[in-house]
């Protein structure tokens, strides 16, 4: 097992190198440094000498390979210096924003999965019924609507015109729930469509398998078959589907964060892209990658723990 864990950890190295490379190619090879310099430069002093000075200060005059290795070093040590735009250490910035994104997305995701699981099970159990068909239609409609439209409608009508929710805002601590309810609802609305369809298909596929027929032939009633057999077996694809989405939750929802003034990491990321705030961008990407890979690592290990055959392959 320890052997397996070490092997999996070694897996991380080439992934980090690759992520660094993609990022490096986009911002250091294709372009972006000049604009970065332009942004950090004091407004008054945009002379050639000044630019060269700053270029030197940020090491952009060194050979490409050295710059790349430096990026890798930063990523590994997670030391990205200060945000030149916000004048705060990058690490602080990240640590401040991630929890806010988590507050938005984790409860929303939990709601989303619970609701869709319940609805999908009812649909699968009463397949072909009016309820099933209505839910299926609404799922397709939900999948076809843009989140931005939903946000605009929600904020305009529910919050602004009807005053059911605060339009936007943020406070520290638990009080933030007040501002999170509408974003949660919107989150659930845009995502349940996909989930319900997936879950329903997974359940129905399971119910077509041979063992279900055998169970039915043995005289087991529908309820027992559904809850004892189908649900339990369909849980494997369903769990996998749920688990692979979890790392992405940390990125939050860029749109929801911006519209509802939630100071999350998605918001931070967009601003960083805009301002060519390269230190922040590097840090967010690195943070996400580490989290993503670490998370897959943990789930893989859990799988390996449960099923020893995985360790071999």
């Amino acid at each position: 097992m320890i052997n397996y864990m070490i092997r999996r950890l070694l897996h991380l190295v080439p992934i980090i190198l690759g992520v660094a490379l993609i990022f490096f190619v986009i911002f250091n090879v294709i372009g972006g440094q000049e604009k970065f310099l332009y942004n950090v430069l004091p407004k008054k002093s945009r002379t050639v000498e000044q630019i060269d000075m700053y270029r030197h200060k940020y090491g952009l005059d060194r050979p490409m390979v050295v710059q790349y290795l430096d990026l890798v070093r930063q990523m590994v040590t997670f030391d990205f210096g200060r945000s030149e735009v916000r004048k705060i250490p990058v690490k602080t910035l990240i640590m401040r924003h991630v929890p806010n994104s988590a507050k938005l997305t984790f409860p929303a995701f939990f709601l989303e999965i619970s609701i869709s699981l319940i609805l999908a099970s009812i649909c699968a159990y009463f397949r072909g019924s009016i309820f099933d068909r209505t839910i299926t239609i609404f799922s397709v409609l939900g999948m076809s609507i843009s989140m931005l439209v939903l946000i605009l409608l929600g904020q305009q009508i529910l919050a602004y015109q009807w005053g059911l929710f605060p339009i936007s805002g943020w406070v520290k601590g638990f009080g933030a729930i007040r501002y999170l309810i509408l974003p949660w609802i919107l989150w659930v609305l845009v995502s349940v469509g996909y989930d319900i369809r997936f879950f329903r298909t997974a359940l129905l596929e399971e119910s077509h398998k041979d063992y279900v027929r055998t169970a039915r032939a043995k005289g087991l009633d529908d309820k027992t078959i559904m809850f004892r057999h189908i649900m339990r077996n369909a849980m494997i694809p369903i769990l996998t589907y749920v688990v692979i989405q979890i790392p992405f939750l940390l990125v939050g929802s860029i749109l929801l964060e911006r519209f509802f003034s939630i100071p999350g990491i998605g918001d931070l990321m967009v601003n960083a892209v805009f301002n060519y705030d390269l230190p922040v961008l590097k840090a967010t990407i690195m943070f996400f990658t580490l989290f993503f890979v670490g998370f897959t690592l943990i789930t893989d290990m859990l799988y390996a723990f449960v099923d020893p055959r995985v360790r071999l392959s």
Binding site: I15, G18, V19, I22, F23, V251, T284, I285, F288
Partner: peptide, 10 residues
């Protein structure tokens, strides 16, 4: 796996 490790929208 490298491409998947970065959020697509980013």
């Amino acid at each position: 796996s490298v491409i998947v490790a970065i959020p697509g929208m980013l």
